[in-house]
Structures are given as structure tokens and as C-alpha cells.
Amino acid sequence: MAKNVTDEPSEDVVANAKAERATRRSPFGRVALFLRQVIGELKKVVTPTRKELISYTAVVLVFVIIMMALVSGLDLLFGTVVAYVFGDGPVG
């Protein structure tokens, strides 16, 4: 199972963010800060195991198939109702 990491800001992180916001940065400084923050966030990413990845993929595929069947069924139903209302009779 993937690690459960809470990402709650502590007082020092908030204080640092307020201090950084108070000082005006050059465009290069802002890009460097952005890249440091991106790298920091990427270090928090947990890669799923092979078993988890296969499980998540199967769940997504089953959900997509169910939704496709639901939308297709509703399309057929509404198409038939519209055909009866406008007098053409059943479509299929």
C-alpha cells in the first residue's frame, strides 16, 4: 500500500512564505523559486506498486465500460422515444 503522507504547513513554512512574499524577487528569482518548489513537490510523489497500478487501471476500465453502456442505453431509449413522438416509429 502507498505511504500516507500528510502535507500540512508548519509555522516555519508559513513564516518563510510570508517573508518571501514580502520581498520582491526578480523574474529569474521567481523562476528559481518555482523550480525549487516543483522539485520539493516531486520528492513527495509515491509511485504505486505494480499490483496497485494494475488494480487502479482495472477499476478505471470497468468504470469507463459501465459509463459507455449507460450512455449508449440512454441514447437508444431517448432515440426510440423521439422516434415515437415524431411519428417515425421504432428506429431499429
Rank of each mutant, 00 (worst) to 15 (best):
T80D: 13
R36M: 14
V71N: 06
V14M: 15
I54L: 00
V62I: 12
S10A: 09
G79Q: 07
E20H: 08
I39Y: 10
V13E: 12
K43G: 06
V71H: 06
L76Q: 06
R50P: 00
A58L: 09
E20C: 09
Y84T: 13
L70Q: 06
S26F: 06
F63E: 07
K43I: 08
E52Q: 00
V14C: 11
V81E: 04
D75Q: 14
T6L: 09
A58M: 05
P90E: 12
L77K: 04
Y56E: 00
I66Y: 01
P48G: 00
M67H: 08
V85P: 00
I39R: 11
G40D: 13
A83R: 01
V59L: 05
I65A: 12
R50L: 01
F78R: 07
G79D: 09
V13F: 04
A32Y: 05
L76G: 03
A19W: 05
V62L: 05
L42D: 02
T47H: 05
T47V: 12
I39K: 11
M67S: 08
V45N: 13
D7L: 11
P9I: 13
A15L: 10
V59H: 01
F86R: 04
M68R: 02
V45P: 02
V45H: 14
M67I: 10
E41S: 13
T6A: 09
R25S: 15
V38D: 04
F78Q: 14
D88Q: 13
V46E: 15
T80V: 07
L70M: 14
T49S: 07
D75Y: 13
P90L: 08
S26H: 03
E20M: 11
N16Y: 03
I66W: 02
L33I: 12
G89Q: 09
L33N: 14
V5R: 14
I54Y: 00
L42T: 01
V64H: 01
T57Q: 02
E20N: 12
N16R: 11
R24D: 08
Y84H: 15
A69T: 06
A58F: 01
V14T: 12
V62A: 03
L74R: 10
M68I: 11
F86M: 08
I66P: 01
S55I: 00
T47S: 03
L35W: 07
L42Q: 07
D75S: 15
R25G: 14
A69I: 06
E41P: 01
F86Q: 12
S55K: 00
R25N: 12
R30D: 13
R50N: 01
I39N: 12
S55Y: 01
A2H: 01
E20Y: 07
A32E: 09
E20W: 09
T49Q: 01
V31P: 02
G40W: 13
